[in-house]
Amino acid sequence: MNLFLFCFDLLLSLTLLALAVAALSSRDPRRGVILFITFGLLLALVWARLRAPDLALTEAAIGAGLTGALMLGAARRAAPRFDSEDSR
């Protein structure tokens, strides 16, 4: 494996871990969901790097896209209970 790809993979893995921690520890539900969507998109890249295009496609479409939309909807409904000024 050449050095460039190794650096890319390393950077990808570290960013993924950092995004996971940030999404889980976020206090604002909406911010957490947006971080989760970013996490899903990068995870799709990881699947593509692992030569699993099927999983990459599914992760991008369902994991990041539709789950993200569903969770944003849930966050919108839950938001007034957490803080009232940031509901939309």
Binding site: P53, D54, A56, L57, T58, A61, I62, G65, L66
Partner: peptide
């Protein structure tokens, strides 16, 4: 690569 779940996600 493709299939029912991806296609369903597009419709969704």
């Amino acid at each position: 690569p493709g299939g029912a779940f991806q296609a369903g996600a597009m419709l969704g």
